[in-house]
Amino acid sequence: MRRVLIVPPPAAALAVLAALALLAGCGGDRESAAGRDTLVIGVNADGPGLGLRTGNRFEGFDVDVAREIARRLGARDVRFRALRSADREKFLERGTVDLVVATYSITAERKTRVTFAGPYYVAHQDTLVRRGEGRIRDVRDLAGRRLCRVDGSNSWRRVIQQRGVPAEPVPAGNYAECVRMLKAGLVDAVSTDDLILAGLVRGDSSARVVNAPFSDERYGVGLRKGDVAGCEAVNKAITGMYQDGTAAGLLRRWFGPSGLRLTTTVPEFEGCD
């Protein structure tokens, strides 16, 4: 039943005014990300295959996912903004960006500052080796082998400290450098999120992912804390992307060539509360 308030002047007009005044007290929240004309979305600028800036164009899986979500939310104009990992919570809290789609893993601690829609994909830590490598089949086989160590990343720690695998860490500045070192024979393996690895070796047949995942990295869509309506709308959009095959197409387009085993059905959402 849709209600139509018949408004007989002047009593009802007065009454409505009074009611609006009452309501004004609880309507102080900022706008939801759902239903905005323009969306500013924070993405990575230096992640090949995920979010990469060339000139002033952004491209990658995250960027395409962000664009699809924005379209399904009904936004007419989408602007991308590069952000570093350390900026993600800050930018959402200040309203610098409306959404963050940037290999942003959902964690209990982050959930205290950010509302997460999705995940839109569950990545796994996995291992990248040279094409001809036959002895490394899972993370245990890294014992005694040279493993690339990127400072500021937890991935190598997961192997050596959490799993207790005695690999020999070799320092590098970032994962792109790791891949160069792998090809040059300076390290035997690179271990981090499979989508990051697959993005780095896209269209390159000299390295492969071993397909022995050992962690879940739930890539979520970050929203301002408390934007539950926006979060629910993003989840609907992600469900739609998986149901109509859009997500599977994007995954294959960006990561198919790496030989990575991809999951093309909708992930288990975190829930917006």
């Binding site: 989840n235 909708v266 992930p267």
Partner: peptide
């Protein structure tokens, strides 16, 4: 995951 998302959708 699908069963879980159904729960979330009804909750929403």
């Amino acid at each position: 995951p699908k069963a879980y998302n159904l729960t979330l959708e009804s909750g929403a």
